[in-house]
Design a protein around this nucleic acid. Sequence first.
DNA 1: AATGTATACATAATTTTCTTATGCATATAA
DNA 2: TTATATGCATAAGAAAATTATGTATACATT
Lengths: 112, 112
Amino acid sequence: MENQKLYKGSLQTIILKLLEENDKMYGYEITQRTKEITNGELNITEGALYPALHKLEAEGTLEVEVVSIGNRMRKYYKLTEQGTKETANRLAEMKEFLKTMQHIVNPKLSLE
Amino acid sequence: MENQKLYKGSLQTIILKLLEENDKMYGYEITQRTKEITNGELNITEGALYPALHKLEAEGTLEVEVVSIGNRMRKYYKLTEQGTKETANRLAEMKEFLKTMQHIVNPKLSLE
DNA sequence: AATGTATACATAATTTTCTTATGCATATAA
DNA sequence: TTATATGCATAAGAAAATTATGTATACATT
């Protein structure tokens, strides 16, 4: 959990990937799901999450639907059509990045 | 080359890994070696490299040796004893990070 | 009744880490 | 003489985070 800084720059891609899998999610749900699938390693802070969601929405990558749950509010986010294409690009870049970093830190295992 | 932002936070680890393999290197050499081993994908800019080297030196992770090559100057950097331990930690964190990101972007292939 | 934890949103101040631009200087090739 | 390569450095600005704070409801514990 001290290697949080390595995740710098990856947050948007993580959000997009989760939304590709789950159709629609709200902010708090994204933080919890991320904690689960990373076994507690990655804790997305609210100060990082909400500005990121707002930015993706402003760019037209995500669209939002506000829902009342009892007396609480939820803002569900989902990929727009444009967002779906964008997600494919981001994931391709992420895979390229991971491959390159693997090659750097573990050159013996990277057969290529 | 448009996914440079994914490398945010990884620069120090990359430098340390190269120095673990090469004993001593100078700044310009690090940029060139990195370009080579990443097939041109990662271009470390001078504005990022030199401040990073100075910081690692100030922390006692690297030590420097200035050498004159003809009329030019080179500053060779190498790991200190403390830096060698630090490098092992950073590499372990990097591997954990890569594993986690693989799991997120490619859950089907991550058998674990 | 009070306190802590969980759910759910948000933003502001600050820090870290880059990019971009600029500067100095030598060497070599077009 | 102009461009490219080698080699260092820093300053201004942008991006993306951390940390701290705020509002509000709900439930469990002391």
